[in-house]
Each structure stands twice: as structure tokens, then as C-alpha cells.
């Protein structure tokens, strides 16, 4: 077999192997959203302690909102066969989107202790959903 064709075959096998390692979409999307929400929570905490600047906190909130949006999109595009699991993930991702959207809209300079509590509670909900999905 010519060398070029052999390499093509190897590449095709690797590509298939890559497709085969696709993670559980419900878990991976909730995990991504959790990561984004935790960062937003930390940034708001630092902002309330006057250890982070307002523009920086705003960028973190916007980035986190984008990340949750991307997770929702990924879940929609996935071929997760278990509808109950998809529904569970969708609910918690929707919650995360709503909270982050409200906070990003309000602006980093308007953050209060109540907003930090909302984010902390949201992290708890995401953790609970992850634990449930992993069972």
C-alpha cells in the first residue's frame, strides 16, 4: 500500500476514535456551565470585596453568560438518547442562563450580596444536577 494511502487510513481511524470518545452531553454541558457560574461567583465576590475592577467583573459575567449559552446550544445539538437526562440538564442550564443574563444586564457596578447569594445557590443546583446525572 502506498505511504500516502496508509497515512490517510491512520488519520481516518484516529478521526473515528475521536468521534467514539464523545462525552455524555448532559454531563459535559452541565459541567461547562458550572465552571462558568463558579467563575462568575468568584468575580462577584471579589468585586464586593473591592478586589476586582468593575470592567473585569462585567467581562466575566458576559463570558459566563456566553459559556452557558454555548452549553445550551451543545445540548440541543447533541444526540443524547435519554430524554429525562436531557430535560434535567436543560432545566438547570436554563436557570443558569436566566440568572447570569439578569446579572450581566444589571451591570457589575450594581452587584450586591443578594446577587452573590443567587450565584452561590445556582452553583449548588448545578452540583446537585451533576451528581444526579452521574448516578
Amino acid at each position: 500500500m502506498p505511504v500516502g494511502r496508509r497515512w490517510l487510513l491512520v488519520a481516518a481511524c484516529l478521526l473515528l476514535a475521536g468521534c467514539g470518545t464523545a462525552e455524555d452531553a448532559a454531563i459535559s454541558t452541565v459541567q461547562d456551565a458550572r465552571s462558568a457560574v463558579v467563575v462568575a461567583q468568584q468575580a462577584v465576590r471579589l468585586r464586593l470585596d473591592t478586589r476586582a475592577t468593575t470592567p473585569y467583573t462585567q467581562v466575566v459575567l458576559d463570558d459566563s453568560l456566553d459559556a452557558v449559552g454555548a452549553a445550551e446550544q451543545e445540548l440541543r445539538d447533541s444526540s443524547e438518547p435519554d430524554r429525562a437526562r436531557t430535560a434535567r440538564a436543560r432545566v438547570v442550564l436554563n436557570d443558569a442562563n436566566t440568572v447570569l443574563d439578569e446579572l450581566a444586564d444589571a451591570g457589575a457596578d450594581q452587584m450586591s450580596k443578594a446577587d452573590l447569594d443567587r450565584l452561590t445557590e445556582l452553583v449548588g443546583r448545578l452540583d446537585a444536577a451533576l451528581a444526579e446525572l452521574r448516578r
Binding site: 461547562d32 465552571s35 462558568a36 467563575v39 468568584q42 468575580a43 471579589l46 473585569y56 467581562v59 466575566v60 463570558d63 459559556a67
Partner: peptide, 8 residues
Amino acid sequence: TTLSQVVL
């Protein structure tokens, strides 16, 4: 996944 996280 973002630069904002790098500097947190």
C-alpha cells in the same frame, strides 16, 4: 476557557 479566567 477564557482570558478573564486566566487572571482571576
